[in-house]
Design a binder for these strands. Sequence first.
RNA 1: GCGGCUAUAGUUCAGCGGCAGAACGCCUGACUGUGGCUCAGGAUGUCGUGGGUUCGAUCCCCACUAGCCGCCCCA
Length: 439
Amino acid sequence: MATLKAVRGTRDLLPPETELWNRIEAIARRVFARYHFGEIRTPIFEDTGLFARGVGEETDIVSKEMYTWEDRARAQSEKSQSLTLRPENTAGVVRAYIEHKLGETGQLQKLYYIGPQFRRERPQKGRYRQFWQIGAEVIGPPSAGSESPLRDAEVLEMLATLLDELHIEGWTLELNSVGSSADRERYNNVLRTALVEVAPKMCADCQRRAVTNPLRVLDCKVHEDQPFIEALPKIGDALDQASKDHFAAVTAALDAAGVPYKLNPRLVRGLDYYTRTTFEFTHGGLGAQNALLGGGRYDGLSEAIGGPKAPGIGFAIGLDRLVLTLQGQPKIALDTICVETPCHAYIAPLGEGQNAAALALARELRKSDLRIEIGDGSFRLKKSFEIANKLAWRIVILGEDEAKSGILTVKDFLSGVQAKVPRAELSAYLQKPADGVST
RNA sequence: GCGGCUAUAGUUCAGCGGCAGAACGCCUGACUGUGGCUCAGGAUGUCGUGGGUUCGAUCCCCACUAGCCGCCCCA
């Protein structure tokens, strides 16, 4: 039988890498809490229609990258239904917002999520078919202030704080406004018209994009095309006054808060639901996938999927890429966020007759929140020492002498000091830093 | 979905048309209760899978699968 493997584009995360993931998530939760965000957990699959209507029928995600299947009816009363593994989480959050009538509370909803998403793309470094995102959404009825540029700026400022606390060095915030959906449509037409003349002089990809997705031409990286792109109409000029004012207010607030950003008039995002503010935080050294996170405002999303008017703004961080970035950074930064955590002590029972006593001792110590590993009485003491030295700060020897006297032998690996410690004092003794090493 | 590169020990990798190699890691070493550094031994394996060429293929050819890089697109 062929050995089973994780399917293409999926992978296992093992210790100690999972430790890094946990720490990143813990930092994110801590930062979100300071900004009064609460966690939301939505199902991992949804009705296909949610993504078709929310994300956009014509987007690549929906048209060719979703894991979709027909969930057959099992009973006469049941209807078959097309289901899809979520390719992103914003649509699910907005669906939940509508379903639970959160708008009726009149309160601004600040929700964050951490979880896997699924897209059937060609796997690459930092791009998996099951990938993880940390994201957050600020959404609510207009009366709650959900349309305010202050919310855009707050989210961006929070992200700057988060990246700083994660010790990501050298990030860049790129910022743009794509205007209202009407602005966007108008601009698309203007662009399409302008491209009729210019596109034939550009690269093959651009000639194709000019027809299929004009906004994408702005993203072209071919050097020779840059002058043509520079000369194309700017989306900023197509914005109505309200959108211009909104964007100016966002940048003013960022300036006041001292959050650095770079205006990028070419930053258009792939998802249909984005309006007004769009942004990306990028980081060099990630190759073609240089975006660490992206997001934007989506004032019409709720209505697009049948809900009330509920403007919002949100973002999603690609966790897989964030981890890659951290792993690629100078060791100092990595150490501050992820250090290996050895056990406080390794208990070495001498003889299988001491195994039961070892478990009892471990239980006692673990109740004091000490990290304890237990050896096995069948091991020779030499072997116990070798193992213990690899994974613990100290070894506690539990032999017949110790069992009788109640005084345990403890050796500190760093200093090499060996001590006799009464059982009642052991927990306190092990809590103490092992010679310069802090717990 | 398209193009290029890659696939050998637990890991990182060398290698060659004729019995499979290194480093690190792992196991064992005066069989009595003492690790690290050193020393002496030892085991690593369907050479990604399936076909083909050949007296003989881990090596050459084809297909498949997977990974990496790029394109498309995107967080």
